[in-house]
């Protein structure tokens, strides 16, 4: 790795830290922006008992200046102390820990589906053209209009009522059973993204197929398969990667919809439940977690893209 690449990576790391810091400030300030007393906001908008008020004041350092409150909060979070939910009367970490696994599994399952079918159908459409292209185009046009909850509804109806191939409720026990249970939720999450990624892949590949350097390779008699791999797909991959990266990173948040529809107790459904009950400490920590995941995943994709195409990183910073 050259010095310039390392310098670029350091620059990226700095930008990443700044974005994380600023977004954590935004998330923290939600308490201040909530109408009414911050104590009430933390307690979930209900009338807290005097002991609770005292506990909240203590835990959130409400007698300190705001910037110190932030520092205490972020310091605690970074040390793994995620605070206490006064509604669940439990440490937030105990709420998240048992639910994280199933969400991660669901998201990974979904990513596998998205990558295989999204990129696969995009490549197929771009290379075959004609009727295949048309079919994929129609399917993906409908697909990008199919939100998770609609697909979930249809799947529940078809599989829950008409066929009984897959379970439509809960997350199951053990890895295999869990995967079995997560199949429909993963499909419901994946459909829109498959369609989206398929279109991105197709247009990126079609654009590269028309690139002038592909003409060069054709005249030189390079075999078609090799032209596709080394000159078309390789060059299309930065675009496919960066767009799919941004989308896939958002899956952790969107997974809430599938979890809700299929009654899965993951962090998504925890987030929704906490929001519905106005449990700000839980929502804040989960938001921070999701934002961090999003930012870090995007940064990883950026690094991969920079390895494939070192010049793009430079020009993108200029743009």
């Amino acid at each position: 790795m050259s010095a310039s690449t390392i310098r670029q990576l350091l620059g990226k790391l700095g930008a990443l830290a700044l974005t994380l810091f600023l977004s954590s400030v935004v998330i923290f300030s939600s308490i201040l922006l909530t109408p009414g007393d911050p104590v009430a906001a933390i307690a979930g908008g209900r009338r807290p008992t005097p002991e609770m008020i005292e506990a909240i004041r203590e835990a959130h350092h409400l007698d300190q200046p705001v910037w110190l409150q932030y520092l205490y909060w972020i310091g605690d979070v970074l040390r793994g102390d995620l605070g206490t939910s006064f509604l669940y009367k439990a440490p937030v970490v105990d709420l998240i820990a048992p639910r994280l696994g199933v969400t991660v599994l669901l998201v990974l399952y979904t990513i596998v589906l998205i990558v295989i079918f999204g990129i696969g159908s995009g490549i197929l459409a771009a290379r075959r053209g004609g009727a295949v292209d048309k079919t994929v185009l129609v399917a993906t046009s409908v697909g990008v209009a199919m939100p998770t909850f609609v697909v979930a509804i249809l799947l529940i109806w078809v599989f829950g009522r008409l066929l009984s191939w897959f379970p439509v409720y809960g997350a199951g026990e053990g890895l295999l059973d869990t995967l079995y249970h997560l199949t429909l939720p993963a499909i419901s999450l994946a459909v829109l993204y498959i369609a989206y990624l398929s279109r991105i892949t197709r247009s990126a590949i079609v654009a590269q197929q028309g690139a002038e350097h592909v003409d060069t390779a054709m005249v030189r008699g390079i075999p078609r398969g090799r032209i596709f791999r080394n000159h078309v797909f390789l060059n299309a991959s930065p675009q496919i990667l960066s767009i799919s990266g941004a989308t896939v990173a958002g899956l952790f948040a969107v997974s809430a919809i599938a979890e809700q529809a299929f009654g899965i107790g993951g962090i998504g459904s925890l987030l929704v439940e906490a929001a519905a009950r106005k449990d700000l400490p839980v929502v804040q920590v989960l938001s921070l977690l999701l934002v961090a995941l999003f930012v870090v995943l995007n940064a990883v994709i950026d690094v991969v893209v920079a390895v494939i195409d070192p010049d793009s990183a430079k020009s993108r910073r200029d743009a």
């Binding site: 002038e212 003409d215 060059n235 195409d309």
Partner: peptide
Amino acid sequence: RAHLNPLR
């Protein structure tokens, strides 16, 4: 420049 693959 356009006729050479910039990534290889």
